[in-house]
């Protein structure tokens, strides 16, 4: 379970995240919605341990991993993050991109290669092992980013608007893949987006952020009565 308690982060004079609290259980997808610059990505970076909070805490399955005074190294958190720009390492092949995420002791050398191939098979990339990221299509790059994220078998998956630049068909394919992964791996997923339809399709829970604050939260069922106009009002506050 990801538990965030009253977390805040300020950059200079800008309050990026202000006293946000939320919790996500294993096997659950939470969508964080909000306009650009509302602090969604900063929230993910705080959970991942890439930023130190000014106040508040982050707990993963009851273990305190982030607070003002304590920071567990990002690599020890058993989580993966899919960046908005995917951040696929340009100097590594498809296979190397995935293999690098696996620690040396996770698999033996041959076992590691086998594991990597199996993961790439799941995302339909097993025929492109030797290609570099720039030699892949948009959809293949997205699938590689997902493969890299799930390869180390994380307990938590953070997704920062990863399907933003995709056409509708591809986006649908990726969202279905995300749902399937959640089911198979029972991960707690936090999915950041600014697309309401995408968020309601994917998520079990939703949080709406504006100017660093969580201004609304509820389950997918709670969104049924809400109109697009209501959501826009949250953004305008």
């Amino acid at each position: 379970m990801i538990l965030i308690n009253d977390i805040s982060k300020q950059f200079g004079t800008i309050q990026a995240v202000k006293r946000v609290s939320l919790s996500v259980d294993r096997g659950e997808i939470m969508a964080v919605l909000g306009p650009s610059g509302c602090g969604k990505s900063t929230l993910l970076r705080l959970i991942a341990g890439l930023e130190r909070p000014d106040a508040g805490t982050v707990e993963l399955d009851g273990r305190l991993v982030s607070s003002r005074n304590e920071m567990a190294p990002p690599a020890s958190r058993q989580l993966s993050l899919i960046f908005q720009d995917l951040a696929l390492w340009p100097h590594m092949t498809v296979m190397e991109n995935v293999a690098f995420t696996l620690s040396r002791d996770l698999f033996s050398r041959s076992g590691k290669a086998k594991g990597v191939k199996e993961i790439l098979r799941q995302v339909y990339l097993s025929h492109l092992l030797k290609r570099y990221p720039h030699q892949l299509s948009g959809g293949e790059r997205q699938r590689l980013a997902i493969a890299r994220a799930i390869a180390p078998n994380p307990l938590y998956l953070l997704m920062d608007e990863p399907f933003n630049s995709l056409d509708m068909l591809l986006k649908q394919e990726m969202m279905d893949m995300t749902m399937a992964l959640r089911k198979e791996y029972q991960m707690a997923i936090i999915y950041v987006s600014h697309d309401l339809e995408e968020a309601t399709y994917l998520a079990d829970k939703l949080v709406i952020m504006n100017r660093g604050e969580a201004v609304w939260s509820g389950s997918r069922a709670d969104t049924i009565g809400l109109t697009k106009g209501d959501f826009m009002n949250f953004f305008r506050r």
């Binding site: 991942a48 890439l50 190294p73 990002p74 690599a75 958190r77 989580l79 993966s80 993050l81 960046f83 720009d85 951040a87 390492w89 340009p90 100097h91 690098f100 995420t101 696996l102 620690s103 890299r148 180390p152």
Partner: peptide
């Protein structure tokens, strides 16, 4: 910086430095 951050998330500082930062 997201290349290095992605490396830190999975393999920590030194691996990210030697396998991602320096080669790039």
């Amino acid at each position: 910086s997201s290349y290095e951050e992605a490396g830190i998330l999975h393999r920590g500082m030194w691996s990210s430095l030697s396998r991602i930062t320096i080669p790039l």
